[in-house]
Simulated assay, not measured.
Amino acid sequence: MSSTFYPLASLSQIEKSPSGEDGLPQELEEDLRAYACKLIHQAGILLKQKQVAVAAAQILFQRFWFVTSMKQFGVGDIGMGALYLASKLEECPLRMRDLINVYDLLLQRATHSVGPKSDQPFHYYPMSYFGSTFYDLKDALVVSEMQILKRLGFNVHVVLPYGTLINYLRVLGLTSHQDASTRAWGYLNDALQTPVYALYQIPTIVSAAILLTIRHLNISLPSTPPTCWWELFDADWEDVWSVCGFIMRLY
């Protein structure tokens, strides 16, 4: 990870991730990243956790796979550990048992959706607190949190984009467009399922969300040199367009 205000992946990590070096196809790695981040998001909703903690967890999760191969740890375990750690960092800690229960529910539901009885209603079967499943998940949670801290070198500072988005919308005069604010906010949340928060600076990511928003809503902003609106925020067009590509691949 590079030593910026907050850590970003290095060029060598981007060109060949640890999972890629172990032979994991890039498309599969991207799908696993997105799926595990959806699990984090769903767990946060069920636990009524704050959005800042859920977002921070997804960013830590994405960073982790630039220093570790997916062949060493399960994405579900690391996602659970990231949410547990981020909840402490954002001062809204979760009970370990609650988090384990929610992940057990989500994993059972995911298994049911791809099983032979997927056409039948899903029924959750709670685990026994004296059985092996609970203690296995508890051990996995503790190990995952420890590995995230260790492999990220305890550099777990996270910068979230929401405040920056509001400021940029005000500068561009878009705050009067309710749909613009809501849609741009949604793009930033969707981008959490991609590695962009570990690859690009926040101004670039926010500019990409605004670009997708104004194109969808047909809002006109100065886009020809030397008066390009994204240059107000020191964002490079190629980087902004690349972030847009990451986000649009989700749909």
Rank of each mutant, 00 (worst) to 15 (best):
S176M: 09
M127S: 10
R170F: 04
M248S: 14
S207V: 00
P116T: 11
Y200W: 05
S3M: 08
K117Q: 06
L39D: 03
G76K: 09
C228K: 12
I78E: 04
R215W: 12
R97H: 11
I166E: 02
P93K: 13
I247Y: 02
W229F: 11
T111D: 05
P121R: 03
M70N: 07
K150I: 00
A9S: 14
M1R: 06
Q72H: 11
Y135D: 12
S242L: 05
T227C: 10
L89P: 02
C92D: 13
I45V: 15
G74Q: 11
A140F: 02
Y135G: 00
S12N: 13
L83Y: 11
K88P: 09
L89K: 10
T111A: 15
S12Y: 05
I100L: 07
C244L: 03
N218G: 00
H123G: 02
F154I: 02
L212R: 02
Y162E: 01
V206P: 02
A209R: 01
N189H: 12
A180G: 09
L60A: 09
M248H: 04
G79N: 09
C92H: 14
K38L: 13
S69N: 06
Y103S: 05
Y162W: 13
T133I: 08
M80W: 05
M70L: 10
M248T: 15
K38G: 10
S19A: 08
A36Q: 07
A55S: 15
V171H: 13
R151C: 08
R63L: 07
V171D: 15
S181D: 03
A57H: 07
K117P: 00
Q13F: 04
L152G: 10
I210D: 03
P222Y: 10
Q62P: 00
Y84D: 08
S12I: 06
Q193I: 00
R249L: 08
G76T: 10
D139G: 00
L8Q: 08
G131D: 15
D119R: 08
P116A: 12
M248N: 11
S128E: 11
T204G: 07
L160V: 01
S2A: 07
P93W: 10
A180W: 05
Y200A: 02
I205Q: 11
A56Q: 09
T182C: 07
L32W: 08
L160C: 05
A36C: 15
G81S: 04
C228V: 13
A110E: 15
L160M: 04
I100K: 01
E30L: 06
G20R: 09
A208T: 04
T224F: 12
P225L: 03
T164L: 10
F122R: 05
A191P: 02
M127R: 15
W241I: 11
S19V: 09
F66L: 03
V206G: 01
Y84A: 14
L99R: 07
R249Q: 14
Y197S: 01
A110S: 14
L39F: 12
L212E: 02
T194R: 01
L199F: 05
R170N: 11
A110H: 13
L32V: 14
M146F: 12
S207L: 02
T227P: 00
G131R: 09
S10Q: 06
E29P: 02
K138M: 13
R183W: 05
F64W: 04
S144W: 01
A184Q: 04
M127L: 15
Q72D: 15
E231Y: 00
Y200G: 01
R63Y: 06
